[in-house]
Amino acid sequence: MKRRTFCLVVSILFCLTAVCHAQVRDYPKKPIQILVGHTASSAIDVFYRLTAEEVGRTWKVPINIVNKPVASGSVAASEVANAEKDGYLLFGTLVGQLASVSVGNPKSPVHILRDFDVIEMHYYAANVIFVRADSPFKSLDELVDYARKKPGELVAGITQMGSNIHLDALLLNRLAKIDITLVHQDGPPEVLTGVLGGHFNVGWTNHVLATPQVAAGKIRVLAADMKCPLGVPTFAEKGYPIDLVPVMGLFGPRGMPPTVIKTWDEALKTMMKDPKFQASMTKLNFVIDMTTGADKLDKLLKEEVARYSRFTPEELGWRKK
């Protein structure tokens, strides 16, 4: 009899723990995949890899990063937009890229406000304008003055059409009423090469990539589009409200269960407080300013879309049909 009672108690306990466990682990129950529309070891890839490791360790569930750089991440975006709405396939991207394709390309298969639920968004770097260390331009004002006096003489190296950097540079031309010739390069390394070699008078990059060059005394940063550790004035302080700061975001298909977003929310908040994670961000020179929570994110996302709506589809790199 005693033995039977014991068995009963044990089995009830087992059931209870199982139930409790199930309650705790509504999500995630199986490995999660995050598609990243950029190549491995790009800033966005690095951030989500570190996040995946940190959060995956807390949840004891593997979170795998898959790089799908095809068509600037458009393929990955459609794949996630049409995925099962269970939170096991997510999309880590530059919000600007997704916003730009949504407002600029009338044929875009996805729309950032229609097809996605956003889990978090964060700033990580400021875009900066720089010259070679031996350049005569000591400040943004001097550069702008010269550009006004000698229209069309200055050449700036920038990144691809429609990138945050390109739009920042466009805004500077527009707001300061100057016409610096903008030469598109494949990416920041090519811009840096061009400026260091003296082929471009000015270049645009982000503060993460500029920092080591500044430390070595190779380049001088004139202004940034957001406060950054380089301690340079922002464009806004100089009278030009230029604000296409790169923002990263984690997205899932529209209509995910609220528990998924809540679980992520909590995990991300814990992660951001972890000194070890903070240290790895400092090592990368990233300045992370993360927003979570549906209301704040919704507002932020709409603002971000509005920033890109100021430009024509051509400026965003999409042909009007």
Binding site: T39, S41, V46, R49, P212, Q213, A215, S280, L284
Partner: peptide, 17 residues
């Protein structure tokens, strides 16, 4: 480019320094 990115993850700052 990948090796460069990897260096940054390890906290080694690639660059002239």
């Amino acid at each position: 480019a990948l090796v460069l990115g990897a260096m940054m993850i390890y906290g080694v700052v690639p660059g002239p320094m």
